[in-house]
Design a binder for these strands. Structure first.
Lengths: 137, 137
DNA sequence: TTTAAATTCTACTAATCACATATACTTAAT
DNA sequence: ATTAAGTATATGTGATTAGTAGAATTTAAA
């Protein structure tokens, strides 16, 4: 399941993607438009900025705007940024790999093999969902 | 990501599936064989019993054994029993559906549609992984 | 038939951590 | 001076991951 953070991030990106090019959206505007608690959204937008999905302008008439094409922002990326691994266990993860502490020999782990199959299919599906694909209904 | 509980459940089921038919496995035996904290495993086995995956015999020479065919126990079922919904949000879930409190009109939710596509693909993949398929490498 | 041993089962407890937010303040732009 | 992002920290809640203690049940030996 997605955390609220990831869900709000997606909603915020959808909001930004729906605005005119060159439009800068204030946090409060996004918060009200997408129904997200404002203070929580601030942190999320900063995370999105650090992830190079959006950029910001401070001060009066400041706000946030997309810097990555909505065709190139995938569900997989947002999941990884906010909720981490897509695989069901760290030992089956590409980007968040960690060995299982309770696993005697990883190569003999029956579970891991199956989980890697799931990961590949889920990842493929999640990379197919972009902000752009969501916006155009 | 799977909880430890779900992971341990899968490992316990794998352990049981690898034993001879008619063999009854004690908790301590499963715990040591699959490297699972014993007392935690007790709770998990009881959950599996309530889910009609295993049954038990009490008292001396008691223990646990599979009552559902290893061909019919899927990853999807275990996920749902221990970790709940397979979908990424409750509004996109089949078995754990709940509307989003922050969603104005569900039918207009751009996100939900995409998440339902993911759910269908993930579910299909997870239903394809059975305990039997994991055991035979 | 009693007793002891082995094992499941039940109920609490507790520590740790993640999650979802709020508060208060600083920095920067207009 | 005002507006808005940025930072750092705090807080409450709940889930997770166990551990503790003991009750109930079964088997088999005495």
């Amino acid at each position: 399941m997605l955390s609220h953070k990831a869900k709000y991030a997606l909603k915020a990106l959808l909001y930004l993607a729906e605005q005119d090019e060159n439009h800068i959206s204030k946090t409060i505007e996004i918060a009200e438009g997408a129904n997200i608690p404002k203070k929580f959204l601030e942190q999320i937008l900063l995370d999105l900025k650090r992830g190079h999905f959006v950029s910001s302008k401070q001060g009066k008439y400041g706000g946030y705007y997309l810097i990555k094409s909505k065709n190139d922002i995938t569900l997989a990326e947002i999941h990884r940024l906010f909720d981490g691994a897509i695989a069901l266990l760290p030992c089956a993860s590409l980007n968040f790999y960690e060995p299982c502490s309770d696993c005697k020999t990883e190569s003999e782990c029956h579970l891991r093999h199956g989980l890697m199959l799931i990961r590949d299919k889920t990842l493929q599906a999640m990379q197919g969902i972009t902000i752009a694909s969501l916006v155009k209904k």
